[in-house]
Simulated scan of single mutants.
Amino acid sequence: MTKIALVDDDRNFLVSLSMALEAEGLEVDSYSDGQAALRAFDARMPDLVVLDLKMPRMDGMELLTRLRRRSRLPVIILSSRDSEIDEALGLRMGADDYLRKSSSQRVLIARIRALLRRQTAWAAAPDDIEGAGQSEGQDEDPVMIRGPLVMDPARHVVTWKGETVWLTVAEFRLVRALAEQPGAVWLRHQLLDVIGDEDLELSERAIDAHIKRIRRKMRKKDPEFSAIETIYRVGYRYNM
Rank of each mutant, 00 (worst) to 15 (best):
L115G: 04
F172C: 06
R72P: 02
A124W: 02
I231E: 05
V107G: 08
H210E: 06
S16Y: 11
A179W: 05
S102L: 03
A123G: 10
N239S: 12
E87P: 03
R188Q: 04
R100P: 05
F172S: 05
E136R: 15
N12M: 09
S104L: 07
R237W: 13
S32I: 11
R205Y: 14
N12S: 12
V107R: 15
G90K: 03
T230V: 09
L202F: 09
A95N: 07
V50K: 04
Y31H: 12
Y31C: 00
F13Q: 00
L14A: 14
K101L: 02
M218E: 01
E140G: 04
R216D: 00
R173K: 15
V28L: 11
I129F: 14
D96G: 09
E224S: 12
M19K: 13
R66Y: 08
M55Y: 05
E87S: 10
L63C: 01
A154E: 07
A88I: 08
V107S: 08
R233T: 05
G90T: 00
D33H: 15
Y236C: 01
I109E: 04
V165A: 13
I195F: 10
A170P: 06
E140P: 02
G25P: 03
A88Q: 04
R11Y: 07
Q138L: 12
D97Y: 10
D199I: 04
I214L: 13
L64R: 02
M93D: 05
D33M: 13
H189Y: 05
L115V: 02
Q181P: 02
K220L: 05
I214Y: 11
E62R: 12
M58Y: 14
S16E: 10
L167N: 02
G60T: 03
L21A: 07
K221W: 00
A23M: 12
D42L: 07
L64S: 00
P126K: 14
A36E: 00
R219W: 06
D128Q: 14
G94E: 08
V175I: 06
Q181F: 11
R111N: 13
A88K: 05
L89A: 10
M151F: 12
D96C: 08
D96Q: 08
Y232G: 12
E229D: 08
L178S: 01
R188G: 01
K217Q: 03
A179V: 03
R69V: 07
P153C: 03
L174S: 05
M45S: 13
A23N: 10
Y238R: 10
I112C: 01
P153M: 03
L108H: 01
L99I: 04
G137Y: 11
V150E: 05
L89I: 10
Q119W: 10
G94R: 14
L178P: 01
D141Q: 13
G162D: 01
A227S: 03
V185R: 15
G183N: 09
L14Y: 14
Y232N: 11
L187A: 13
